[in-house]
Design a protein around this nucleic acid. Structure first.
Lengths: 246, 246
DNA sequence: GAAATAGTGTCTTTCAGACATTATGTT
DNA sequence: AACATAATGTCTGAAAGACACTATTTC
């Protein structure tokens, strides 16, 4: 092992954010247009290099998130996705990035970030379909982030992370349908959501809109779903190889 | 964003391996005894700094795995766990490590690694119970690795990664029982394992041991379990907070 | 009343959990 | 025969999927 750290090759370390929301009936991701080379003019995940030498990865991610959205990280879900470190992923040199996944409700906030970069929401489907618009290997990071988010909705109560503080069961179901790209039966979903202990807490209040007023709920204390809320089998995919292994 | 990478603070990047196996009816992990300061004499995950500047993270992990076990990574399951980068985690300075999780059958191989370090199997329960034996923050990495492995067994067919090329259903069940620390009904497990399409392939061969000979199976092409094979509810844990969020 | 959306109920199928019995080898 | 382990079967209850109906609001 290393006697002296300075003798070791060092790398530049960055933190990138995959901030997802459900907006306009689509799963969208916050992207910035790069002002400088490389990939000038293309879209990239917000992020940046670790500035202070004594900054924790999670802290750095939370800081970036606050800078980009103006939101304190405490109010959002933020978790590490994974690290990416292919040698050629940044033309400037060896850059390893740790990507974080954030889930947030559709707030009117993000447009004006702390710095000059123009941050905007983009539908993930469109962005993934035209990967050439994306800088670096961010197409992969985004795909991984979406996959992680989809899985989270199965096993945890994080669907509510996409919802405002008070929401109806229909709104929550629409989140699931959009993130999973799959229609769900409203009655079965209602039954499941209300039967899971600690998932939803009734507020007593109701909406007032088109049809019959819907009951408003807030997030409950539960964090895991037992048993999970499963996506329907994708029978077109026999589950042969998800490419996770080696 | 950075004009010049060299102006950015750089960090030392390491890759650590959490190599798990089921051995001696216990979940065990391959650890090395540190020969140098810091944490001299304590146990640590095998790993090392990224040597060549042009080495991919996955490649570096596979190389370390081969050095440590003498096994080609193609035959094992190897996946990235996550990155760890707390400022104080290495007293020598800022070191970010990317931890990889490997699952392997109980092979008589690992003892003699390529280098002089004494690598040995240790039961994870014992190591986690006495965290003071471990160097750095490796207690956390190991706990995370075990948790990931447990989850993998629910949703994927990776239980077989702990088994030799041919194995019986009882052996597979024991893997699940040991990793999950939970007894499973042999009959229900047998039913489930054999009913999942592509999970197991009969070899036609049988064991010859104590009681009635058991049919031998090999790993099938399926990689995901649909529906998942769930651990029993842990009713002592109401699932309030898994500490994943922020 | 018509339209829109919310909420409840029922039937069926699938699957997990609990448990008994039979099968096939060794000593 | 005694023993050990493997394999199959049966019953039950929980939960998912499919589907019909009732409820409450606005226009």
């Amino acid at each position: 092992m290393a006697q002296n750290l300075k003798q070791r090759p060092q790398v530049a370390l960055a933190v990138d954010l995959a901030i997802l929301t459900v907006r306009d009936s689509k799963l969208q991701i916050l992207l910035v247009e790069r002002a400088n080379e490389p990939y000038r003019g293309q879209l990239a995940l917000p992020g940046g290099f670790i500035d202070t030498a004594d900054e924790d990865l999670d802290t750095a991610a939370a800081r970036e998130l606050a800078e980009e959205t103006g939101l304190a990280a405490e109010r959002l879900h933020l978790e590490q996705l994974r690290a990416y470190g292919s040698p050629g992923r940044d033309p400037r040199g060896r850059v390893v990035t740790v990507c974080y996944l954030a889930l947030m409700p559709d707030l009117p906030i993000p447009v004006a970030g702390g710095d000059a970069r123009a941050a905007r929401w983009e539908p993930v489907d469109a962005v993934l379909a035209d990967g050439d618009r994306l800088a670096f290997d961010h197409r992969v990071l985004i795909a991984d982030a979406v996959e992680r988010a989809q899985g989270k909705l199965e096993n945890t109560t994080l669907g509510v992370a996409f919802c405002p503080p008070e929401f109806t069961i229909s709104e929550l179901r629409r989140v699931y349908e959009i993130v999973w790209r799959q229609e769900l039966d409203p009655r079965n979903f209602h039954r499941k959501a209300t039967s899971v202990d600690g998932f939803l807490e009734p507020t007593g209040r109701r909406t007032t809109r088109g049809g019959r007023p819907a009951a408003l709920y807030r997030r409950g204390p539960a964090r895991v779903l037992h048993p999970p809320l499963l996506r329907g089998h994708n029978h077109s995919d026999p589950g042969q190889d998800k490419g996770d292994g080696r």
